[in-house]
């Protein structure tokens, strides 16, 4: 349980929220209903709304469950006692802007979804050491079988490519997005937007893509050039492989000579439940 120090706190919070008196819910519910009217206009919350909503979301939690219609059982479909917001079958209810903002934290390559904020390489180094280095190593070189984040540039055509943020990842937005949604492992959603900018900046620095005095922000985010941005192309199996792989198969006398064994799995001996399994384990899957 020590992996999840926030769990006890979270449970306590949940208990408090559940115990909130009905009277206290009323204003929140009205606000939520008013906000629902704006929901149709919402496509993607801008950064300011995201910030605001993040603050508001804990307070709004009781309203979340009673917003569109207030059934006694929040899991009873709203449409059971009236009309849902769905356009064909009248199922579901309108999503509130703060609900959308709470969950819609994705960031696209064009920067859409980036929150306001900034973070420096200098701050990022401290944050990285505290939050990331136990798995990724102090310099992003990776501990054990955890993913390396730095190095490997120019190795993609090698026998053993080293795929890191610097050598492989085509878009910087993916780094920010992924840290924001899933890192640190076992303690997701614990870093602030500025802290994520700082850690992202430090990872760039570890890859020699920005200097030590660099400060990453929403404004300069798209100026960072990722070395392997041009290294990807769309699946072309249909045009490249299918002409060969749709030839009528040979059924008889398909080989001139009797085939011989060229490689044995037993040589490596990495199968579980066999002697010495994993002794010469190949690189990990991530």
């Amino acid at each position: 349980m020590s992996r999840f120090p926030d769990l006890a706190l979270g449970l306590a919070l949940a208990a408090l929220l559940a115990a909130a008196p009905a009277a206290a819910q009323q204003p929140a519910q009205e606000a939520a209903t008013a906000a629902a009217a704006d929901a149709t206009n919402l496509t993607e919350a801008n950064a300011e709304e995201v910030e605001k909503a993040s603050d508001a979301v804990e307070e709004a939690k009781p309203a979340d469950e009673t917003a569109a219609t207030p059934p006694a059982d929040p899991n009873a479909s709203p449409a059971a006692s009236g009309e849902g917001a769905g356009r064909v079958l009248a199922l579901g209810r309108a999503a509130l802007p703060e609900e959308v903002a709470a969950w819609d934290i994705d960031v696209r390559p064009d920067g859409r979804g980036l929150p306001d904020g900034q973070g420096s390489v200098v701050d990022g180094e401290v944050l990285f050491t505290d939050n990331c280095a136990s798995c990724h190593g102090d310099f992003g070189e990776a501990v054990d079988r955890w993913p390396a984040l730095a190095g490997g540039q120019g190795t993609l055509a090698d026998e053993d490519p080293v795929k890191t943020v610097g050598s492989y990842w085509p878009y910087l937005s993916t780094t920010y997005d992924y840290i924001r949604r899933a890192m640190p492992f076992g303690n997701a959603h614990s870093l602030s937007n500025d802290e994520i900018y700082a850690i992202t900046a430090y990872v760039l620095n570890l890859n020699d893509l920005v200097d030590e005095d660099f400060v990453l922000s929403r404004d300069n985010f798209l100026t960072v050039e990722m070395p392997n941005a041009g290294g990807f192309f769309q699946d072309d199996r249909d045009t490249v492989e299918l002409p060969e792989f749709t030839q009528a198969p040979c059924m008889e006398s398909c080989k001139a000579a009797a085939p011989e064994i060229t490689k044995h799995a037993a040589v490596l001996d990495v199968t579980p439940d066999t002697p010495d399994d994993g002794a010469e384990a190949p690189p990990p899957m991530q």
């Binding site: 929901a39 149709t40 919402l42 496509t43 993607e44 569109a68 929040p74 899991n75 009873a76 479909s77 449409a79 059971a80 849902g84 917001a85 769905g86 356009r87 199922l91 579901g92 209810r93 309108a94 999503a95 609900e99 959308v100 969950w103 819609d104």
Partner: peptide, 17 residues
């Protein structure tokens, strides 16, 4: 389950829905 983005009406469904 939330549906949002480029839709006419962002929605939330419960499991019962």
């Amino acid at each position: 389950l939330m549906i949002n983005g480029l839709v006419e009406q962002p929605l939330v469904f419960t499991y019962a829905d």
